[in-house]
């Protein structure tokens, strides 16, 4: 049984990684062929870095993701604190249902619904094409908000409500109690929510596809347009670079995750104890 489960697990991971390994290998292929490796070459990488439209779409993607992350985190954290404090049951339910909608609706419906509204609003103002960076930003903030709220709300519920009250008793203004006590307490949730918002925005294609204008292309839309026509190994080079960026990010986040942090803190504490012991 033990070996059988190991073989099974290995088989699944081969299935998950074979396509990625193939992309990786063929990004260094000299020829255009996708089935025969004829020799090592970096020419597709050179071509990729000469492709101004792709480079610009990378910049656009980062600009959009950072903006969407900041806006959705600020609105989402405020909303979570508000929802947590709300006494009105029906308002609470209404806001939570609104949060669930973009999570459960297929992306294509979220995209279509926003697009229809933007097109309609554009007509009202007599615009021929109302889709732009701004409509895309609105769409991204909309689908990022639930991720922030769903990360922050549980942290608020875990927090001891006596903490901000104690701060108020000790002379903090409500504003000070919020920024000095509540925010630091829920910080892990805020950070996870912000990271999720950032990656969701970075990765989104479907909603962006329906809400983007002609002038503003993100990387997923650029990839879509590139793969529409012919297969080019330039795409493989791009995929390989993305793969290594993701790998690096995952390794970094794994090194700085809870366990590692705790271990490091523990070590530091032991060190200070030792120093103090020597002093005495």
């Amino acid at each position: 049984m033990k070996t059988a489960s190991k073989i099974y697990t290995a088989f699944i991971f081969v299935f998950l990684f074979a396509p990625i390994v193939i992309l990786l290998v063929f990004s260094f292929n000299e020829a255009r062929s996708l089935s025969v490796f004829s020799g090592f070459s970096l020419k597709w990488y050179r071509e990729l870095f000469r492709d101004e439209a792709t480079l610009e779409s990378v910049r656009n993607t980062l600009l959009l993701a950072v903006s969407a992350m900041v806006i959705s985190t600020v609105i989402g954290v405020a909303a979570s604190v508000g929802i947590d404090r709300l006494r009105s049951k029906w308002l609470k339910t209404a806001l939570k249902t609104a949060t669930d909608i973009p999570m459960t609706n297929p992306d294509i419906i979220t995209g279509i619904s926003l697009m229809l509204m933007f097109v309609f609003a554009g007509r009202l103002f007599g615009l021929a094409n109302s889709l732009s960076f701004w409509t895309m930003l609105i769409a991204h903030v909309t689908f990022c908000l639930p991720y922030v709220i769903l990360q922050v709300l549980p942290k608020l519920r875990q927090m001891d409500p006596a903490l901000p009250e104690a701060a108020l008793d000790l002379g903090c203004t409500p504003r000070q109690a919020f920024f000095k006590v509540t925010i630091p307490e829920i910080m892990p949730g805020i950070i996870t929510g912000a990271i999720m918002a950032f990656t969701m925005s970075l990765d989104d294609f479907v909603i962006s596809y329906f809400t983007s204008g002609a002038g503003f292309q993100t990387l997923p839309i650029r990839i879509y347009n590139m793969t529409k026509k012919t297969v080019t190994p330039k795409m493989y080079a791009l995929a390989t670079l993305i793969f290594f960026v993701i790998l690096a990010l995952l390794l970094i986040s794994n090194l700085t995750d809870d366990d590692a942090l705790r271990a490091r803190k523990e070590r530091r504490r032991n060190k200070t104890k030792k120093i103090r012991g020597n002093e005495q």
């Binding site: 294609f205 990839i223 993305i242 793969f243 790998l247 995952l250």
Partner: peptide
């Protein structure tokens, strides 16, 4: 890792 790579790719 595969999940974080864009699904288009």
């Amino acid at each position: 890792i595969p999940m974080w790579m864009n699904f288009l790719i």
